[in-house]
Nucleic acid binder design. Structure first.
Lengths: 155, 155
DNA sequence: TAAAAATAGTTGACTGGTCAAGTAAAATTA
DNA sequence: TAATTTTACTTGACCAGTCAACTATTTTTA
């Protein structure tokens, strides 16, 4: 009770949704939070975070030459300014290797290790199960529609 | 080059999207990441995180009696097991108060302070601008559709 | 009513993520 | 070609989030 007495007057719930988009934003945040939690549960089996999983996918797709550290960061689904640290931790776990490039000595190309590929392989099925579950829940048309609407939102 | 020689064989990009839902998940993560970044930019003006902003909104809506700590956690858009710490930090900043309840001494109801309300007020317009921007970008029908599809995804 | 279970929250140890400033190499420009 | 700018990171300090174990209180149940 150490607040000013007129706090009562000030506390008034604003109209629930002034803009319709506010409701969409909340729905977006909630839905994504839920999906992220499910993905986390899967990646946790191999002691990695969803972000680290994303890096592994990117590096597997990149092939032998690997990719410079910051380029990996740019390709991530969720932007991650802390990409150096993220990859530090992955290197410690033996999931990736890093070697300063010979041609451009500023760059440090990262490559996935065979251990990293093993981890991806072992997560493949449980990850597919998440996707299959959604695929079953929503029609293909609605998924297309959703993808389209989300693209529109991103402009 | 300290990887096994057959790593070359193992690196093969899996088909881009085995399930259509995979593409939707990526779109969802990307879109939400972008929106969250915009929201962060706004809340940063008042030196709070989007989660703290969310707590302030919940507490303003809750009125005088405030809400028990864990109840606040449950109402959050993104679930947050670290709610105690989160509110610790907010209390330090003078945005909320906490007092162990008289009737049930296990509970610690949290209340927003007038300073907390000030912060909400000062973020109101910039936050509305984010919403207005989306409202302008998408038709009301499409927003409804999006909200519906997201609800379907959450089951 | 005493013991057991459930609830509400706190705390400590840890990991992960973020920001700002710094370094080193390459590219650009004067 | 020397000075400047840009690029590609790295590092240090800090904050936020997570997990497991713990305390205190209330509720249930035997």
């Amino acid at each position: 009770m150490n607040d000013s007495p007129d706090i009562k007057k000030e506390i008034k719930q604003s109209k629930p949704f002034e803009y319709k988009s506010a409701e969409a934003i909340v729905a977006l945040l909630r839905t994504t939070d839920e999906i992220k939690r499910r993905i986390s549960e899967v990646t946790a089996r191999e002691d990695i975070t969803p972000q680290q999983y994303n890096v592994l996918r990117i590096l597997r797709g990149a092939g032998y030459d690997g990719l410079p550290t910051l380029e990996v960061g740019k390709r991530m689904i969720e932007r991650s300014p802390g990409i150096t640290r993220l990859i530090d931790r992955m290197e410690k776990k033996g999931l990736v290797t890093r070697n300063r490039s010979g041609s451009d000595r500023r760059c440090v190309p990262c490559k996935i290790t065979s251990r990293g590929i093993e981890v991806l392989d072992s997560l493949r099925d449980p990850m597919a199960r998440i996707e299959a579950d959604i695929d079953q829940k929503m029609s293909s048309n609605n998924l297309d529609l959703l993808i389209e609407l989300l693209a529109e939102l991103r402009k």
